[in-house]
Design a protein around this nucleic acid. Structure first.
Lengths: 333, 333
DNA sequence: CAGTTTATTGTAAGTACTTACAATTATTCT
DNA sequence: AGAATAATTGTAAGTACTTACAATAAACTG
């Protein structure tokens, strides 16, 4: 069944049917009603391929992420899909893993699928070596690129980022104000977002008259047990700390477990702050004080910006959203 | 740039170019090489819409789930996307929420997008009232339907399910064998999968000479805090139990928190078993004994079956996969 | 080497839409 | 009412592929 069948039944030309299909206002109300009725009766649905051929758009957005089962990204995907659909767009999901080569491959694949834009979800797409990001910048010539929680300069590239610097600055300041002096910083990734988190923490300590010495900065796999083990071994080595600021709830959850295992009381002897306000932050005992990185707002802004781009509206190429400090039971403030 | 540009450069007809594109063997090696070289030089990529029009397939699978941020489903989506892509298929994601009407709407939408099949991920798509599933069965006339962890009778409908009955039967048996006598069963959903979990538990108790009385079966929102509160109030009411079998790790994590709050020691005074072997099961302290419902295997089987259907192979309409009991620290066996 | 078979290539007709432009009809103005 | 204008509708030419069938070239056969 196609547009011709409908046009015959409704006694109009295929052009009129097509106009009704596309909400073109140059159709009389009577005709529109008749055509819609015929469509309904026949159970007609337009063929998306023919449509795509003519319009050269599928109303589909490619979403790339490293790993959709990651707590943060799973949430991002949920909100992105929801908000895109509200705007009439489908989402094609692409999990790329962490290899640069794989990312590039999937990037090309999505481009060849003629998606209308690509959203790179999560900060893992911006490589530390600028030349490795060239593929993104060159693709942006063809198709709008949205970075969710990442930043890259370039024409037709739009970023929405959480103000990670301010977030960790505030969190660390609070720790200092509550009397903590020996802060341990735990992180996993050195991405744009990751770097800002560290900087915020360092700045807060500096402004508080303290200093974040290198032995108080530790990288750790994003894994509860790995974090726990790392902390146990640091303690074994004699490192003393009275508070932990972690770049993810996973690491913070590991810190809580560490305290349990070492017989340290939280928050009396040790404060812990996580990041992302994920489900894990409600699973530990005591529950985690954590930074809410506002995924939902980030996603909304990303989709909003994208719709602005499609609509030819002048949109900012960079949007920053403030994080919230969620105070729960692993801190004494 | 299109197939004509390539055909001119390569001095062949568009039919030959198309054949090369589709891997048709009726092209001489010399010609094929020449065409491929021209494609490479021109940076040609075929237009997916025109392709879809001709082939009437987009090599795209619709994945429907209630909520992609759910831990179980996020994993399922990850594995499905990965395995589909390995077979050259894209995934369009659709999060439907829990309303029957919304599910039907998105179902129609995906069908109209001419996806090659629809995967319904999670047991939430099979309604308790059979007539509400008619839309699935009628759509199956047009397009293969794959149920991941759900079961529905019907032509062109294929199910891959975890043997939930055997899983909870085994888990409950172990609890009994370890000396537990008063088992509390906690669940959230009454889906196909949910019903089987309960049945398995009941059967194990019965075979152990016990009985799961109604006051020992409680429904609870899939939320750590809700589960904790429920258990606290049950205890308040004087209900006595020495073990908890939960239909999800969330509920089990709530049980661990409950024990903490009530000063009950795990596993000495209370055993807890979760379900799904999710990240939560490693976050609680002690870590959860849990049932691994083998999402990865389920997804692999689903994709396998689907490829079989596409290939015209005779595939079973129902595949069952055995779960594993992961013994950790919330049980004393 | 002519005739037959097989391998390769080309022609042309789908596939189901969109849209510029032309044609028709309706409305407004004088 | 007739002309001018506006609203609506239709015609026809894209859009970029696939593929059945015809045509040609190559390989084999006796």
């Amino acid at each position: 069944m196609n547009i011709y069948d409908v046009s015959k039944k409704a006694n109009v030309s295929i052009a009129t049917v097509s106009r009704v299909l596309n909400g073109n206002p140059n159709v009389s109300d009577k005709t529109r009603a008749r055509v819609l009725e015929v469509m309904e009766n026949l159970g007609y649905t337009p063929n998306v391929f023919a449509r795509g051929l003519g319009l050269n758009t599928m109303r589909t957005i490619g979403i790339m992420c490293s790993d959709s089962s990651d707590l943060y990204l799973a949430n991002a995907i949920y909100y992105l899909e929801r908000d895109l659909r509200l705007n009439g767009y489908d989402s094609i999901l692409c999990c790329t893993g962490y290899e640069l080569e794989t990312k590039q491959k999937y990037f090309d694949l999505l481009c060849s699928k003629r998606v209308d834009a690509i959203i790179l979800a999560g900060s893992k797409f911006i490589e530390p070596r600028p030349k490795d990001n060239a593929y993104i910048q060159s693709a942006a010539a063809m198709i709008p690129i949205m970075l969710l929680n990442g930043y890259l300069e370039g024409e037709n590239i739009y970023s929405t980022i959480c103000d990670d610097f301010a977030a960790t600055y505030h969190a660390a300041s609070q720790l200092i104000r509550s009397g903590r002096r020996k802060l341990l910083y735990l992180y996993t990734s050195t991405s744009y977002s990751g770097a800002n988190k560290l900087k915020g923490c360092q700045a807060a300590l500096k402004d508080g008259g303290l200093c974040l010495e290198p032995e108080y900065i530790h990288q750790c796999r994003k894994d509860i047990t790995a974090a726990k083990e790392l902390l146990l071994s640091l303690r074994e080595q004699g490192l003393e700390f009275d508070s932990i600021l972690a770049s993810s709830d996973s690491l913070a959850a590991g810190a809580v477990k560490y305290a349990h295992a070492a017989g340290i009381s939280i928050p009396d002897e040790l404060s812990v702050i996580g990041y992302n306000n994920s489900i894990l932050s409600r699973c530990t005992d005591p529950e985690l004080t954590t930074i809410d990185s506002k995924v939902e707002a980030l996603c909304a802004s990303t989709v909003n910006t994208l719709m602005g781009v499609f609509g030819g509206v002048n949109v900012p190429s960079r949007t920053t959203i403030a994080a919230d400090l969620i105070k729960r039971a692993t801190t004494n403030f």
